[in-house]
Each structure stands twice: as C-alpha cells, then as structure tokens.
C-alpha cells in the first residue's frame, strides 16, 4: 500500500492510497507510529484516497489515537469520505478522532 507523506510547515500529512484493510492496516499503523514519534504528534491523516476502513483499520487508527492521547492529543482526520464517516459513527468511534473538512484546516488546527 502506498502512503503519501507531505510536509505542511511543521505538520506531516499522511495520505493512505487505498482502503485500510488487513495487512494495509498494519502498514498504516507502522507509518503513523513512525510519523507520530518523529513529529511528536504533529500529523494529520488525509483520508481523501481511503474509500473504506475495516476492523483491522479501525484497530490501527484506535491504537494510534490511544498513544496520542497519552500525550494529551488525538488523531486528526481530514477529507474522510461518507462511508468512512458512517463506519466511525456506527461503531461509535467518531469521538476518538478530530475531523476536518480539508488538509489546510486540519494543519491550521496545530496553531
């Protein structure tokens, strides 16, 4: 799975290119953890190219946001499509993440 990384000022935006399922979820978890450690939590997940998230993907996302919460932060998502938003709503996990309409708004939230 390709995961694009881009710097917006001091914020790293990671954009998984595809659905967060099975093995791809593991890869996402590893990349997110590495970026989180390096940037001390200053990162945003751009979900614009992620059409779907399965239980493994949710687990990976929860694990990362759980680690972030130990430092008083939560994972910031942006551009989540309706399917992903619905999955988060149905599983009652939406409140574990901050949601933004686009990358710039998410990046500005670090100001």
């Amino acid at each position: 799975m390709q995961i694009k990384e881009q710097r917006h000022g001091a914020v790293t935006v990671i954009a998984p290119q595809g659905a967060l399922v099975q093995a791809d979820a593991d890869e996402f978890h590893q990349v997110a953890e590495r970026v989180m450690t390096r940037s001390m939590g200053r990162f945003v997940v751009d979900m614009s190219a992620t059409p779907y998230v399965d239980s493994a993907g949710l687990e990976a996302m929860l694990s990362v946001t759980e680690q972030l919460s130990q430092g008083g932060q939560v994972m910031k998502l942006c551009n989540a499509c309706e399917t992903v938003r619905e999955i988060l709503e149905i599983t009652d996990l939406s409140s574990y993440f901050e949601h933004y309409a686009d990358v710039n708004t998410a990046v500005r939230s670090f100001l």
């Binding site: 919460s69 130990q70 430092g71 008083g72 932060q73």
Partner: peptide, 24 residues
C-alpha cells in the same frame, strides 16, 4: 493537557511529569 507539565524539586529533579512532557 497537550502541553508538557513538569514539577521539579529544588535540585531540578522531576517530581511529577504529565503524559505530554514524557512525549516531548
């Protein structure tokens, strides 16, 4: 808190540190 909070004693030894401080 998303800011690191550390309480030190008179010799600058850490007596308390919150989660964010540990991350930073």
């Amino acid at each position: 808190l998303w800011h690191g909070l550390v309480v030190v004693d008179d010799e600058l030894r850490v007596r308390y540190a919150n989660g964010a401080a540990a991350v930073f």
